[in-house]
Nucleic acid binder design. Structure first.
Lengths: 352, 352
DNA sequence: TCTTGCTATGGTAACGATACCAAGCGACGA
DNA sequence: TCGTCGCTTGGTATCGTTACCATAGCAAGA
């Protein structure tokens, strides 16, 4: 009797239609080793006619059978940076015949923990996690993951036994700050994300190092490190612009902060101010060319970061769990989008 | 005997530790109905101590048990528009206790087909697909999906039995074009994506309707409809700018085309041209405020689109497969970012 | 001719969780 | 006192697939 819905076709149905046993169907679909070509054709035809799809869940139930799934927990999928990152992971995963289970933690530790637990329950072969702000090691322990390989991406977490891939945050920020200092800037503002995210701390460290080397003080009034959105970054930038002695340049530690800063600066200029601070931005973003002020990017390849994270995961699966963890750094490079006009700083700034 | 790795804990292990039967464990974890509170505590303690996670794949093997998975196929995850879309889906799915299986088709039909087949094999409860350019109905048929509900998002496909949620493309483009015409523009360029994507066709239709109503011809020399990336859009815009009579305004049919257009216009202005065409953009994007030329956005909420797609999916699961398909439209709205200065068109354009 | 070795095929059991049925137990009304 | 009901607990079978073993057939070699 024909089924009402096509739901629930099994090897048995295909076997019946092809006039063979379920085992022959299984073998054929697994590659056809030790099956007569004629039978293989009958099986393929039957499978096609019925619209049969192997049940991957049942398949992975057998011990030793991989599930073909990789879990990714991301903090904010709306940030194109993480979208690109996810593409990079997906690219490599697809090459290895794996699918992506995706979860958005929204910078919430509880949600992240829940995601990880669920991924484990779904038998993922490995996890790639961009840890949420303040994430603890406890829900990323080897025991919690039942021995599954874990890669931390973009951000570090203390005391977690895992491979890690991060950007060259410290050096990138150092180079970016040095770039501003070399151009003659002395009053440099800093817009960044919270210190509970490792990028927030590392980039600030690099910035401070460059300032210290130049004998410049990092003045608290010029530093704002709480902005996680472009809107709050814009507000922070406006505060800096309203200071009696506003900074002649700002270092924005990620794309959300840069976008907020540039938005505020554009409003400032539209409001009649003839002058706006130079910007160095960690992260690239669309339409950087439209910047109304001198702009330099600390550029990197988010997709490469995702690819590398996936590669570390598959490497780990090959090497076994007992090799020491790997820390991989993705290089960054300075890209001047709009150069500093000569003599800009001395003459053009407001009330020095 | 102790296990080498923690991999493969089962109800049996928990049952043994708690001194009860596997059934009692199962019942407890399923909510604890008809289990003595004392035993429940023992079971929970044992599960926690061992770090047990229920095997969701084995669970969904039993007939009638849902897998808890929703499959999403997207054409380009690097486009923040689709990132936001995915967040919207994930939000609603998480509310319903479902996880997301994500695949990137990269506008490739073969990859899309493969993704869909795999999703079915993994027993997803439903699929949300942004169909790739030129996607055919055949691999989205009810039979192919084994009766699983399908929602098409953002783009239409002919002859597919599915619920659909799209933006108000035609009307949005119509309003955008009318806006330019009302401002006095007569020579209006069009930058869009290919007609094999329904948005490419629908937005062009709306544009043409506004032009026709105003008695204006859509001149082929002003129309470029093959750009899928910002880079190619930038090249197309440069061609328009090099025409003896360049358009005084351009309609860009999506964010990639707008970004390309603005980049080309910025280069043009930096090159010394005192004048650049006005822009209307379908889709919003970061840093629109930096536009050097008059800019109006046809704005909409990609996250809302994702949410609605997921809601349609769950509605369909409730209503059953026999209700007629639903077509839902997400409204768009005009947002003037940089208004048209008065008298700009007559005086300022090059060689009329 | 009989053995050995190979390929092709099928039956059976098992993966982990749970629906179903059976059974034990105390409480309560007849 | 006995039967019945409800609650609790456990044994068993099953979901779809495939590893393993068994078997049948055939060819080559002793």
């Amino acid at each position: 009797m024909a089924r009402e819905h096509a739901v629930g076709l099994t090897v048995r149905d295909v076997a019946a239609r092809a006039g063979v046993s379920p085992m022959t169907v299984s073998r054929t679909l697994a590659g056809g080793k030790n099956v007569r070509p004629e039978l293989q054709q009958r099986v393929w035809a039957a499978a096609r006619d019925l619209g049969y799809h192997r049940n991957e869940n049942a398949r992975s139930l057998r011990p030793g059978q991989p599930s073909g799934l990789i879990g990714i927990a991301i903090t904010n999928l709306g940030n194109p940076y993480y979208g690109e990152f996810a593409i990079g992971v997906e690219e490599v995963a697809a090459q290895h015949g794996r699918r992506i289970l995706l979860g958005n933690s929204d910078e919430d530790q509880a949600r992240e923990r829940q995601l990880v637990a669920d991924f484990v329950g779904r038998q993922v072969e490995g996890l790639i996690v961009v840890p949420a702000a303040g994430a603890k090691a406890s829900h990323l322990s080897r025991a919690e993951l039942e021995g599954r390989p874990l890669v931390l991406a973009s951000r570090l977490v203390d005391d977690v036994w895992a491979d890690v891939v991060v950007l060259d945050d410290v050096n990138g920020a150092y180079q970016g700050a040095k770039h501003l200092i070399a151009a003659g800037h002395r009053r440099i503002g800093y817009l960044g994300n919270v210190a509970s995210v490792s990028t927030g701390q590392r980039r600030f460290d690099g910035f401070c190092r460059a300032m210290a080397e130049a004998g410049l003080a990092v003045e608290p009034g010029y530093v704002a490190r709480q902005q996680q959105t472009a809107a709050s970054a814009s507000a922070a930038m406006e505060q800096l612009l309203r200071l009696p002695q506003p900074p002649t340049a700002v270092f924005a530690a990620n794309n959300r902060n840069t976008i907020g800063a540039l938005t505020a600066i554009a409003r400032h200029l539209d409001g009649g101010a003839g002058w706006g601070p130079s910007v160095v931005s960690f992260d690239t973003f669309d339409l950087a060319e439209l910047s109304p002020v001198p702009l330099t990017l600390i550029a990197h390849d988010a997709r490469a970061l995702g690819r590398k994270a996936a590669e570390l995961l598959f490497d780990r699966a090959d090497k076994g769990p007992d090799h020491p963890p790997v820390l991989q750094t993705i290089p960054v490079s300075l890209r001047v989008v709009r150069p500093e006009p000569p003599g800009r700083i001395e003459g053009a700034g407001p009330a020095t």
